[in-house]
Structure formats: structure tokens, C-alpha cells
Amino acid sequence: MATPLTLKELSKQEEKFTPGHRLCAGCGAPIVAKMVLLATDYPVIAANATGCLEVSTCISDYTAWKIPWMHSAFENAAATISGVETMYRSLKKQGKITDEIKFIAFGGDGGTYDIGFQSLSGAMERGHDMIYICYDNGAYMNTGIQRSSATPFGADTTTCPVGTCNPGKLQKRKDLTKIIASHGVPYVAQCSPSHWGDFMKKVRKCHEIKGPKFLNVIAPCNRGWRTQTDDAIKMAKLAVETCYWPLFEIENGVTKITQRPREKKPLVDFLKPQGRFKHMFAPENEWMLKAAQEAVDEYWARLEKEEACFAPAAAEAPKAE
């Protein structure tokens, strides 16, 4: 029986991702790793792309991972875990292994949206039974807050620094969640550690679906976002409530918004506490706030339309029961 997803029960679970790692105080990434493993009731093996989570959690001779864990390089966590999973299938077929083992790859947005994009696409297409989890903090935080294709429009980073001629990143984010969904994989979802029930349920769901799964999880970084150290969960929550980071899933092609904000907050509520967007509040950059809000509204409206496409089918389902 799976552990019920209640705080009481989860608090009794042995942690497979343990304290003592060297991630920054207030980092969102270890919260993501911890929640994923807490939601995993199976024996599990993880591969980790080079990045914050990797360099800070396994510094020889210490590890925060109480599970078999592997890091090989930056751009290939998906390919690496696909090799591990394939060996598992091979040995299982030969009767040399009987355990039911699950396979997870963790990568940051740089290692997933950018340099690891090809490797991820290949693994998704090949259909390995795995979950790829991107902890998206919106920049190359490990190397010192450089712009990635996941960096939001307007953000000040160390490679698109705000200056007299440049108001921060001028391009919008790559919509990786939808790109992976376009691979026709059985399940993709966006998650947030602020909505842990939704997040952990999605992890659980992944474990029960055969094939490649992709979870894109927002992971606030107080160093890069220029926020208060203890604001990770608050910021993740604001990302959801402003619809900057909608929580949805696409299961077998069917889009569903899994957490609809009771009241859609203005995007500035999410932007204002972050130093990386400070310049957007200068009078001459008002257009940026407007453009950012419009992009969020457009995305959200489109998502609602996508969900509505499948709504009749969803509405019929309860009647059939």
C-alpha cells in the first residue's frame, strides 16, 4: 500500500534525501528532490545532471542521497538514466533482477531546456520508463546566475545584465513543458513545491504510468531571484497564483489545469519581491511589465481553451461511474 499523502503519514517516512547537503539556505531545489522521493514508494535510482543539486549533494565521501545515484555530465542526465533503465530491462528480462525499480533524472533548467535538450528529447522519444524532473530556477544559478532559455522575460542576469542600453532579458521563456508534451509522451505536468499535495500526487501518478514522464517544477533561487532567504515557498506560491507558473498536466494528450487559483493575482505580485525584476518598475520600463502581464494572460487563456477542448469528455466521465 502506498503511504497516504498526508503530512502525518509523510512525516513518519524515512527521508531518502537527507539534510547535511551544501545547497544554499532557502534553496528550492532540495525541497523538490525531497518531495519527489517522499512521494516514491518504490525502490528508486536517480541520475543527476551537473548543476546546483548535483554539486552540493554528493561531495566525496558524503552523499545526501540514500538511494543509488549517478552523475555523469551536464547535458546527459536523460541519456544516462536511459542507459540505467535499459540495463534494468535487460537484466529483468534475463531473470537476473526481480525488484520493481523506478528511474528518475533530475536536472536544472540549464541542463534541461538548453544543453540537455537533445538528450531529453531523445530519451522521451525512445520511450524509456522514467521520470525526468526539471527543477526550474530560471537561470544558470550554479555558475552564477547566467541567462538560460528558461529565464523569464525582463530578468536581470549576469549575462544579460541590466544596463543603460539593455533592460534585462528581452526574449520570452521556452515552453519546455509543451514541447515535451509534443513528443506524445503519456504524461507531462507542471508542479510547484508550494502546492505539495498536487506535486506529490503527480509524482505518484507518474510512477503508475509506463513510459517517459516529464515534470517541470518551479524551484525558487533566492540568490538569482534576489529574494529573501526564507521566501522560496512564498515565491513558488505567488508564481502559481499569478498564473506565471500554471499547474497543469497533459495526460495522454488531455490537458487539465490541476490547481486553478481562486483569484488570479496580478503578475507584479510575483515580480515585485524579486530584485531581478526591479528595473521593470522604473517608469521608462512600464512597457515591460505590460508585456510580461500580457504574455502570462495569453498563456493562461490558451491553457484554459486547451482544457476546455477536453472538458466534455471529462464531464461525461463521472456519469459513467
Binding site: 535510482i45 549517478m70 555523469s72 546527459n76 541519456a79 544516462t80 542507459g83 533503465e85 535499459t86 538528450s119
Partner: peptide, 20 residues
């Protein structure tokens, strides 16, 4: 593992060999 590049082919070999 019919990978999408040699980089991934070797990465998969590495994962598989570590797997045992």
C-alpha cells in the same frame, strides 16, 4: 539504446555499465 547522438549513445553506455 538507439540514441539521438554519439554523445547520448556513450552516456547511455555509461549509465548501463554503472547499472551493472
Amino acid at each position: 539504446v538507439l540514441a539521438e547522438s554519439e554523445h547520448s549513445a556513450m552516456s547511455a553506455c555509461i549509465g548501463a555499465a554503472a547499472a551493472g
